[in-house]
């Protein structure tokens, strides 16, 4: 019995908790990508760097707050700084839209033109982030680091295996749930949210109904920027902030959006967790987990790891390819491709 408990604790500690946190981060990023896709109809390659930019603003504000002696008690100061980062990121995307995308929208350019324009903006966001904060790894988590420490858990339960619960992981999940609930409430219940869905569903009919496309586009960008900043900050709190890592997140985020059916908000959330749990569970070494369940003589010799963690991006890629091959519209039937 205790062996089984120990094995379960290992699973919780190394797969379930990290998977939930990572999944929530991906889901928030993918939700932004999918909303941009639904309304503006292109894959935003600058999204990873938008996350980095937003998170950078949050970090700079956090440092300023720490300098003034402001703190959020046991919670990270970054949560207080979050609104400032969101406002800055919204400013950046609205400026980008005004100066870049609007022109192509009025010309009704092809989606790939938008994608290339987003590559241009990716360079610019990237440069801004690096210019202000450099390329180094930054940790900006303060306050209480753990909710449950490994030693405490052992003492509490008497089990051999520990379960550590970091504050950042819990915050990630709580914030993500709140944000996703707010976005869905907005989309389902408010007039503007419904207008956005209507516009995404049938642009001509939406225009005929008197829905203002400029407003829909603006609100989409604002939500996407807010989601990107929150996702970027949570990822940075949970792991660390390094601009290049956010570019690398682009692939799992796209995979999440496509798996769930691109253009489908609910699908993006589900896709985020599918990708995260696949990545975590496939790259985890199960040796210690098995050591509690199997008798000594049955233990395999290796680490019992399906894939080295260096290949975690391969997992998102394989999921992506499988979906494209088997079910191109994604689990929740996204837009026609």
């Amino acid at each position: 019995m205790e062996n089984i408990l120990n094995a379960l604790v290992i699973l919780a500690n190394f797969i379930i908790v990290p998977g939930l946190a990572y999944g929530a981060q991906l889901a928030l990023g993918a939700l932004g990508v999918t909303m941009i896709y639904a309304v503006l109809r292109f894959s935003n390659f600058a999204h990873g760097d938008l996350m980095a930019f937003g998170a950078m603003l949050v970090i700079l504000t956090t440092w300023a707050m720490q300098g003034w002696g402001v703190s959020f008690g046991p919670l990270p100061t970054a949560l207080l700084a979050l609104p400032f980062g969101i406002i800055g990121a919204i400013g950046l995307v609205l400026l980008s839209d005004r100066m870049v995308y609007r022109f192509y929208r009025e010309k009704k350019s092809s989606p790939v033109t938008f994608v290339i324009a987003s590559v241009g903006l990716m360079f610019i966001y990237n440069a801004l982030t690096r210019f202000f904060i450099g390329t180094e790894d930054i940790r900006f988590e303060d306050g209480e680091r753990f909710i449950i420490r490994a030693a405490e858990f052992r003492a509490m339960t008497g089990l051999a295996e520990p379960l550590a619960l970091r504050t950042s992981q819990v915050i990630t999940v709580v914030v993500a749930v709140a944000v996703v609930a707010a976005v869905f409430w907005f989309l389902q219940k408010t007039r503007t949210g419904k207008a956005m869905r209507a516009y995404s569903d049938n642009e001509d009919l939406a225009l005929l109904s008197g829905i203002d496309p400029k407003r829909v586009v603006m609100i989409t960008w604002m939500i996407a920027a807010a989601l990107a900043t929150i996702a970027g900050t949570l990822y940075g709190l949970d792991k660390s902030f390094r601009p290049f890592n956010f570019f690398l997140l682009l692939l799992p985020i796209f995979a999440s959006a496509i798996v769930g059916g691109i253009g489908q908000p609910f699908g993006a959330i589900a896709g985020g967790f599918v990708v995260a749990f696949s990545e975590v569970s496939i790259t985890y070494a199960y040796r210690r987990f098995l050591s509690h369940l199997l008798p000594e003589e049955w233990m395999p010799s290796g680490l019992v790891q399906l894939l080295s963690t260096d290949y975690k991006f391969a997992v998102s890629f394989v999921i992506l390819v499988l979906v494209l091959l088997v079910r191109p519209n994604g689990i929740f039937k996204g837009r026609e491709i």
Partner: peptide, 20 residues
């Protein structure tokens, strides 16, 4: 063709009709 919002409910379709 394309005269309804397919992913919106019937009620939401009518609401969007009254958007202005």
């Amino acid at each position: 063709t394309g005269n309804v919002f397919r992913s919106l409910t019937v009620e939401e379709n009518l609401e969007m009709g009254a958007f202005i």
